[in-house]
Design a protein around this nucleic acid. Structure first.
Lengths: 193, 193
DNA sequence: CTTGTCCATTGACATAGATCAAGAAACAAA
DNA sequence: TTTGTTTCTTGATCTATGTCAATGGACAAG
């Protein structure tokens, strides 16, 4: 799995073996079987997770016990609850693996250490933060301004690889609609074109 | 207005006059009349804006020309399009003043300078980023899991001061519902209690 | 005071999407 | 293959919210 971690940090600029040793020494590899949890509601998050292989998701339960998927995290994405880590407060999220998944865990102090000592880490971190923030903005705008069908199309455009690998009902949950509705939307779209 | 800027950076730790001089020298004060724009769709954002007094909002136009409010920024909030600044790409947002407003503008290189030279700046920046990110997460979760009435109640809880000062139809736009619907929700709530 | 503009309210109706119920596929395990 | 799970589809209704249209209040400008 280590080569995947290295490839990620070398995307923009190559890094030396020494630097990668530093990185490597801070991350903890964890293998998750499909369905295993990384974090549950009520726990305090202690790590950020980098997905080397597989796919995680995070979701919340509403007051009726219904799941709502907040994020998918396939290869090269990060998943964490920064709020919980930084404020030492219980998370509202569940995070689990929707396939067999390999993640690298990083605790906050290691994170700060790497920021200060490995420029390539700082670069990728910055890029990652931005990407996440932009994705969130896009999602908020979509939820305000688009009907379900448009949001689905936009999702397909933005995350074609995710569409292939997650079951439809999870997509529906992410989009904020019922599986039945997504099924009907797909039928509509198939007919039109 | 400078004392407001100073008060913001001194919230957690006092700062010296020298440090504040440094801060002061980088910010540009701009006064906006109600209705004046800070940024329009298609422009490239050049500054982050700190609201010292008054209130800004950002919104997008959907393909039918309808406004959707993405954010309100009252005193001590920041408003910017990081994506546009950092990627040098045209913004999709309009940002304007909903009251007479005083903002302090900061360009990216000054931002980096202050991060490196004024610890209190770095601290407040970090806190601000977190606050924004948490607010976005909360909003995404709410849009997935709550009906209009619950979202409205949550908004009142979270931003009581904003409710007082913005017209109802803007609140509706932020909540993703029509003004008529918000009016009906308020009527319902008044009846119940 | 009068006029115009903006905003909130209310009603009648339309529609996107939810809910409930039943099957049909798909797929894995035995 | 048979059986059991899980996922997807389809139909019949129900409900929250949007749309359209009219009215009345608040407030600013003349």
């Amino acid at each position: 799995m280590l080569h995947l971690l290295r490839a990620y940090f070398e995307r923009d600029e190559p890094i030396t073996d020494e630097q990668f040793d530093l990185i490597q020494s801070k991350f903890i590899l964890k293998q998750l079987k499909k369905g295993e949890f990384l974090l549950r509601e009520g726990e305090i998050a202690r790590y950020g997770a980098f997905v080397a292989k597989g796919c995680l998701r995070s979701y919340v339960l509403d007051n009726k016990g219904k799941q709502h998927i907040v994020q998918f995290a396939p290869e090269n994405w990060w998943l964490t609850d920064a709020d919980s880590i930084l404020q030492n407060k219980p998370t509202i999220y569940f995070m689990d693996a929707i396939e067999d998944t390999a993640v690298f865990l990083l605790d906050p102090s290691s994170h700060i250490f790497l920021l200060q000592h490995v420029p390539a880490y700082a670069t990728q971190f910055q890029t990652g933060i931005q990407k996440h923030a932009a994705a969130k903005d896009k999602r908020i705008v979509a939820s305000l301004s688009s009907m379900a069908e448009e949001r689905y199309k936009e999702f397909i455009q933005t995350y074609p690889s995710i569409v292939q690998r997650v079951p439809q009902h999870m997509l529906a949950s992410y989009l904020g609609i019922m599986p039945e509705t997504l099924s009907r939307i797909r039928k509509q779209m198939a007919k039109k074109k």
